[in-house]
């Protein structure tokens, strides 16, 4: 989780990733930020993110991203 927080802070350090639950729905992370985030997540966790994973529910909070990473690792 710490590694994920580090990546997120690198993308946009002004957000509180530990408590925020509407990163996408609240317009805090735009599509460009998400695209910057994807290669970082793929490289750091050895996963492959596909269009099917591109739903707000997977990126609205750090926990949601963490759950998605775990799910993709298992697949």
């Amino acid at each position: 989780m710490e590694q994920l927080l580090e990546i997120l802070n690198d993308i946009n350090p002004s957000l509180d990733y530990e408590t925020e639950t509407k990163l996408i729905d609240g317009g805090l992370l735009d599509s460009f930020s998400i695209l910057s985030l994807i290669p970082e997540l793929e490289d750091a966790f050895g996963i492959e993110i596909t269009p099917i994973d591109m739903v707000p529910a997977n990126f609205n909070s750090t926990q949601a991203m963490w759950d998605m990473i775990h799910r993709l690792k298992e697949e």
Partner: peptide, 14 residues
């Protein structure tokens, strides 16, 4: 959802 992300996530663009 149907153009930007699918193109961005193709192997070529990655």
């Amino acid at each position: 959802d149907y153009i930007f992300y699918p193109i961005s996530l193709t192997k070529f663009v990655k």
